[in-house]
Design a binder for these strands. Structure first.
Length: 232
DNA sequence: TACCAGGTGACTG
DNA sequence: CAGTCACATGGT
């Protein structure tokens, strides 16, 4: 791989190309900040459509609010959220989330969201079952504070573009974007949504480079096309 | 049919 | 600190 050190301008070129291709996408697909949080937990390493089924099951059972989650047995929650996968683990995560919001914020999720960005992020990560990505999902899409979200797609696309990130941790990728882009909620919101769409439709594990809108900007894409054409 | 999907925590060397 | 594993359903 090359060792490209892209500038803000390069990142914005990719953003513009993706926006022209797919956007605007208006993430997060949820009716409320609270639903963003519950959905973020349920979609961990899981297709969104499966998380949606779990959300619908909770709603259909009338088990929705923090108080509802707090009052429901973990094993009963696990039955309802079964379609989201990892249902035993995720039921425990929902219980932990509800327990902390009840304990520290009087069961008022909005109160938690009002914390300053870094305090909010730290408070979320401190909850068992909420890691860096889920915390950033909630900070960005529920609290609407500029915190760049890194996921599987983000890492894959960055690597294929040939962009050189200093390190391989979640924080290294996050810093890569945040150090080059203005801390703008709308920009971070749309950028992550677009990377997600691109990763799921085009920059897949087996990439569809021939009709990729980022081809001219992508080391891997150009290399793949050359190999396909047999020009070495 | 394997593989993959909007991760996280526990455990190990 | 980096690598490995369990956790699990549903779509292609």
């Amino acid at each position: 791989m090359p060792d490209l050190n892209p500038t803000k301008s390069d990142l914005l070129k990719v953003f513009a190309a993706l926006l022209k291709m797919y956007g605007p996408l208006h993430w997060w697909p949820a009716d409320s900040a609270y639903e963003v949080a519950i959905g973020a937990i349920l979609t961990q390493n899981t297709a969104w459509r499966n998380a949606e089924k779990a959300l619908a099951n909770l709603r259909g059972a009338g088990i929705w609010s923090i108080q509802d989650l707090h009052a429901t047995e973990q094993k009963d929650l696990s039955i309802l959220i079964r379609p989201s996968g990892y249902f035993n683990i995720k039921a425990r995560k929902l219980k932990e989330f509800a327990r902390v919001v009840v304990r520290d914020y009087q069961g008022n999720f909005e109160m938690l969201l009002k914390l300053p960005k870094q305090e909010l992020r730290a408070a979320l990560i401190n909850i068992w079952g909420i890691g860096e990505e889920t915390a950033d999902d909630i900070v960005l899409y529920a609290a609407k504070k500029p915190s760049f979200v890194v996921d599987t797609y983000t890492r894959r696309i960055v690597k294929r573009l040939g962009w050189s990130v200093d390190g391989n941790s979640y924080g290294d990728y996050k810093h890569f974007f945040e150090s080059r882009l203005p801390a703008d909620t709308k920009l971070f919101n749309e950028y992550h949504a677009l990377l997600d769409r691109h990763g799921s439709t085009t920059c897949r594990p087996q990439p569809l480079c021939t009709h990729c809108t980022l081809l001219s900007l992508c080391f891997t894409g150009k290399r793949n096309i050359l190999q396909t054409e047999g020009s070495g």
